[in-house]
Design a protein around this nucleic acid. Sequence first.
DNA 1: ATCCAGGACAAGT
DNA 2: ACTTGTCATGGA
Length: 290
Amino acid sequence: VRPAAAASAHVSIAHGYHLERTLRSGQCFRWVLTPDGAQGVLYGAAVSVRQDRARLVVTWQGPSMQPARLARYLGADQPLRDIQRALGQDRVLRSLLARTSGIAIMRQEPWECLVSFVISAFNNIPKIQMSVQALARRLGERIPSAAAAWTFPSPERLARAGDAVLRGCVLGYRAPYVRALARLVADGELDLKAVATMPFDDARRLLLDLPGVGEKVADCVLLFGLGFHQAFPVDVWVQRAVEQWYFNGRSRTPRAIRVWAHDRFGPLAGYAQQHLFAGARGRLMTGVGA
DNA sequence: ATCCAGGACAAGT
DNA sequence: ACTTGTCATGGA
């Protein structure tokens, strides 16, 4: 086994971007933080990346990759400075930003993003990570000469996977959802790339018709995989945070909170959600690898 | 052992 | 539309 030639590059990024905060903000499940950076897989390549001020130092193995593609994937191509200046008009977000500034919205591969968040339903983060990693390891393709990296399995591979394999990925009752989604994509009945080009409301309605996809999961896919930054996923943490910090502790339905956020934050609602989520989770998310 | 986890879904108000 | 009970599984 001879080591593969690893290509490397420097990627300039938006001012204020914070790689580590972005990767442990809960929007992805397969990146691993290392003492001086992070490792992940995207578009068939195993990538090792660390941040050096206003640039990323990147090494990858597998298919060559345009620096701009990595920057877009990591959300490092967005005008974070302007976005956070706008969000800072809000008193709650302004106080949170001291600890959360630099969190960007990633643009992950839509298929992995969809499956990951279907798995996330009524689940805990360590087990979500376990399941997604298990799917890659059992059904994905090994990236040549990378230390230990697999692509996320294609819809075709997932559609053909047996019950025993999926059971080994501890998907639980979500396994039928994942298989149904895989068949839809493999059969050409669902084109996620096309969904990304639709108007927001149409894209959201389409996702809501998919098995295992409710409002929260749909909003996560829209936000983290399809580039719709106005999406505002309301999970239990965001719901509690909004009720406590904006509604004086009075309870609101998730739908009411989503409508409120759309009205208050508009096209930046997704960014607001990330800061509220990070603020609500607090110290729970500050550990390396957690 | 018992409870919880970035909800979805179906059934009952 | 909002509320309730159920769902598989590993970890705390």
